[in-house]
Design a protein around this nucleic acid. Sequence first.
DNA 1: AAGATACTGTGTAAAATTTACACCTTTAAA
DNA 2: TTTAAAGGTGTAAATTTTACACAGTATCTT
Lengths: 231, 231
Amino acid sequence: MEITLPTFNSVFSIDCVIFGFEAGELKILLIERNQEPFKDWLALPGYIVEQDESIDDAAERILYELTGLRDLHMQQFHTFGEVNRHPQGRVITVAYYALIRINGQKDLRPITQYARKAFWHPVSELPKLAFDHSEIFETGFNKIRRRLNYQPIAFELLPEKFTLTQLQSLYEAVLNKKLDKRNFRKKMLSYGFLKELDEKQKGVSYRAAKLYKFDRRKYAKIFNNELNLDK
Amino acid sequence: MEITLPTFNSVFSIDCVIFGFEAGELKILLIERNQEPFKDWLALPGYIVEQDESIDDAAERILYELTGLRDLHMQQFHTFGEVNRHPQGRVITVAYYALIRINGQKDLRPITQYARKAFWHPVSELPKLAFDHSEIFETGFNKIRRRLNYQPIAFELLPEKFTLTQLQSLYEAVLNKKLDKRNFRKKMLSYGFLKELDEKQKGVSYRAAKLYKFDRRKYAKIFNNELNLDK
DNA sequence: AAGATACTGTGTAAAATTTACACCTTTAAA
DNA sequence: TTTAAAGGTGTAAATTTTACACAGTATCTT
């Protein structure tokens, strides 16, 4: 027996591709849907934009309601507007991405009924997702891969204090290729926006590595120069 | 006396930033509005998306209806979704850009009543535009500036056969800086996607320059390699 | 036809950046 | 004390980028 669903006219929605990094692996945040259509499917956190909120505000709210996560710096990356991308009506969706440190303690707890749960899933071996969410994910992944070179993407995924090896393995995960250790370090340090700390890694069963911090101010200076430098 | 305007609920619209290049100058396509709000103002060509068309299709149709131009390769670049960006209601607009050879003969003739006329305007000294169109333009200009380096943007703006000097002056117009002639030529030719023709420029009152053509196939090959090259 | 004008077309050396590559050191655990 | 595992480091070669100047040629003018 078929379930009858309401239909509606044009609505806007937001879908979120939230990247995290944990145990050397790049992950994204998925929800298990608790609502038709695609009930029980895995999907990107996403929902409908209200009349009186900007799309940027909507993105924050929706992510919070579906996953319990707040105050991420989200950025729009593409809008998907095929006619039949949603089975119940015309839905144009603006896709956002954000990058976040995965933090074991922070629990992911949907506030609304629309999601049964929210959880991290490695970007490799993603299952088929609801709607056109697999395509949305792919588009987003390509975007951040490109932006890695000129935006401080990596530092939002790592803990505040990190080792150069962690930084490198993040780059390797995003770019999907091996990098040379010595060249990577030389280059990163040459930028001058990494601050070496007087601290070392703890709890490892081998020689502990130095910890570094990302210096946002210096980064901004370099980045702005790049844009303004009319030579 | 104030004019009373209808209001409406959420609608999607498309706005187009169409770049052209003529007489060494970068230009964009504007319309003069013939409808409230912002009647008589200059604006980007833009209008509302229909229920049964994808946003990509809508972009093509709308541009055609407002300017008479067809078959451009348009690409989405950003979606603007502030609550009050349109005085009559909630309008979220997806902005597209395209690049086109300006061709004196081709006339710009609005098909609908909504635009009184369409015309090219230099990107320097743009007047204030309707709605948030000035911001949309700026965002689009920044996008193509960045994409100039990895997309065949320049070749869509030039005539099919062009000289290296024309190519250089286009780069200079987009990047807003002077480039070195010898280095520019060396670099462009080294890519290998320029095909030297057995023809020369005509109608100039000085030594005629060689003409070149853009080899789309070779470009694609190079571009794909860049993406796939997992070293 | 001689000269003026205006742009075409070309090479090289120095500097900067990128690449390839291997081994000793340090820490903790066994 | 030995072993396991990752940390940390330098150099030479190759490549790319930059800076820089002048003779050649087509057309127009007189």
